[in-house]
Design a protein around this nucleic acid. Sequence first.
DNA 1: ACCTGAACACCGTTCAAGT
DNA 2: ACCTGAACACCGTTCAAGT
Lengths: 230, 230
Amino acid sequence: MARPRTPLLSRERIVAAALRLIDDEGLDALSTRRLATELSVSGPSLYNHFATKDDLLDAVVDSVIGEVDLSMFGAAAGDAGAAGTAGGAGGTGIAWPQALRDWARSYRAALAAHPNIVPVLAQGPGRRPNALRLADAVFGHLVESGWPRGQATRIGALMRYFVTGSALASFAAGFPADAEVYDAADYPHLGEAHRLAGHRGTVDEGAFETGLEALLDGLALRYARLAERP
Amino acid sequence: MARPRTPLLSRERIVAAALRLIDDEGLDALSTRRLATELSVSGPSLYNHFATKDDLLDAVVDSVIGEVDLSMFGAAAGDAGAAGTAGGAGGTGIAWPQALRDWARSYRAALAAHPNIVPVLAQGPGRRPNALRLADAVFGHLVESGWPRGQATRIGALMRYFVTGSALASFAAGFPADAEVYDAADYPHLGEAHRLAGHRGTVDEGAFETGLEALLDGLALRYARLAERP
DNA sequence: ACCTGAACACCGTTCAAGT
DNA sequence: ACCTGAACACCGTTCAAGT
């Protein structure tokens, strides 16, 4: 059998299987041969749908970013004309702190569902449409809310730093559950660290929420200063 | 020639060569054979010094973390007895916001010098001594400055999120310098994004500093609330 | 157009053999 | 103890061959 009348593969099927493999067994487990076996075809078949393995990875990454909710930015971007002043958010969109909060939570949730691919995704948008759409929506909303363009760029960057960092790996699970590791002579304050892994979910979520609210508070201070000194 | 009278390799030489290879050509370029060639030995020779490639990577990672300055935590940790209240930092150590600021900058500088290995390092301390020492110093300083243990854990986590995220990749360089990428119909606010890569250093550093100060401001608000409601 | 097997230059790791 | 070459089961990718 060489070419079937109806194609065995599609980009969508390949991307879905690749993401499953990465989620279940890590980025290193994704090999073209292994993936092909999973899809019941031979290795080189994949090259009819993607030029290289990197191209395939790009598609996987963009499918993950496509899950991030951007609807909180939509309304403000659409109307409001020249909002442009720091007095308040333009148009009918929700205020920027709440929009950033909602977006950051959705962003983190989408990435944390696939931590093994975050190192690839963190390299930046490149030419991936969903990643560019995300950057466009955040930057546009901030500018229309009255942030100067340079500041808006920095906020987009620092939010990505924080979200990708929080999705890359669990903080709690990074500490071995074996109490023997934490010799009191070497690490006097880590006597309870072996219990962290057991509270993985709450520790990581608590740290993310604390950091997010601290960031938003700190940014609100700076936003208030924009109005004072125009 | 089989075994020379004086060993050709040492763990230190192997780690240094591996880090150079990772810095220059990326994590994927580090293969045991390639590394061995760089060191003028045959591939299997490395297995006399490291059990597996993962063990070698662990040593590389810990050598990078060893570059992070922890001296700002030293003084407060050493004395102060039972500081324990939110009124002020215990002992002669500098106050926690300045200590966190200095540490975060050193942490980021050490990691940003070797971005290709950050995904490995971000998995957590594991059993690596320098990584555990770092976690111990930060947590100890925060607790002795009056932060409740749960909050101190979260702050350690969220600072790592932010620093690793900022060192993982350049935000600015993630946007292609080719203006053709940013079609105004698709991305109405990214008309200037092709100029980001040219200002890589200032954009990334500005975003890091803005985020760091915002985080510290937000945390200071919470610290003040600790004293109000004991 | 889309799949196949064979082939090329690579991998990490094991192991018997050398000194 | 520390290095070697040979070997095993893998890689990503190319290519001629099939329908």
